[in-house]
Design a protein around this nucleic acid. Structure first.
Lengths: 150, 150
DNA sequence: GCTTGACCTTCCCACCATGGGAAATCCCAT
DNA sequence: ATGGGATTTCCCATGGTGGGAAGGTCAAGC
């Protein structure tokens, strides 16, 4: 199997196959006389494993550990579980961060009329911000056009 | 005000100040005879605006648009709102993506005993995966150590 | 005035994972 | 033999940030 076939069979792009090899995530593939990489079914299994792990958002370094454990018949599932849970915690943190951003921005957008006039709570908040959530900052509602000080 | 003071006053690192200038997000700062950048209060206002926008996860290019609108007294709030909503949609998409990853991985971790033995549903899933959610793949529970084909 | 330390300048490198593209070579089918 | 597709290596870009080197500048203390 050459790189194109291994790519199609594993769902990992040829570009990434070369990259993974270059960083040592996968061993150096065998070569034909002409220098073409040669893959075996076994390699494709590994690549599929890697691709699924990437689909779960796992960073390369963690995948490196998982592949090592996968190959290790003496592993303890506790090690695998720990890696998974670390990643769950990071995903969770990221989710909370993004959710907070989304909520704040959604509230601001909801408060914005979205018409032809310039008055805009979103800009007012970015300009003056400090607090959080609705009422993140008290602003005189009659204050006009929220533009930078000239 | 030199770059260090502007940085402290705005919450934007000196490094980023230079970067924002280099990409034209902020205009080229004035210079002293020795070449030191000089900032005014007005510049700090802009920088604070930018930092708050970054805190909401807005990418530079969108911030560029927002700063333009902020300065434009003829703007319509609809333009601002549209930009905000686009970003909310992107945040939402990312949140859903990460949440799906987290849920899948959490389920797998929950199913893993996490003991000294090698048997591990997480590795089994990565190895064999295909479906989604619990029972993403039917695997004989008596199957043993889920290791790569040798 | 001179030293010292804190600050500033520009420039390059690194991250992380991925894609794009160029130039050269190779394989296979016609 | 020729042409088109696949492959090779190498460099560049992304986005936003930090690190650090090499050198110039400023201000305070002596």
């Amino acid at each position: 199997m050459n790189i194109g076939q291994a790519s199609a069979a594993s769902g990992v792009s040829a570009k990434m196959l070369r990259y993974y090899e270059s960083i040592g995530l996968i061993p150096r593939a065998g070569r034909t006389e002409a220098g073409y990489r040669v893959y075996k079914d076994r390699d494709v299994n590994t690549l599929r494993f890697i691709r699924r792990a990437r689909d779960l958002g796992l960073p390369i370094e963690r995948i490196r550990l998982l592949v090592g454990l996968w190959r290790d018949r003496e592993r303890s599932s506790a090690d695998v579980k720990r890696i998974a849970e670390e990643h769950v915690a990071e995903l969770e943190a990221k989710i909370l961060e993004l959710t907070a951003m989304r909520d704040t921005l959604q509230e601001l957008a909801d408060a914005c009329r979205g018409d032809h006039r310039p008055e805009c709570p979103i800009l007012r908040d970015l300009e003056g911000g400090g607090g959080r959530g609705p009422g993140r900052r008290q602003v005189d509602p009659h204050q006009c056009a929220s533009s930078p000080a000239a």
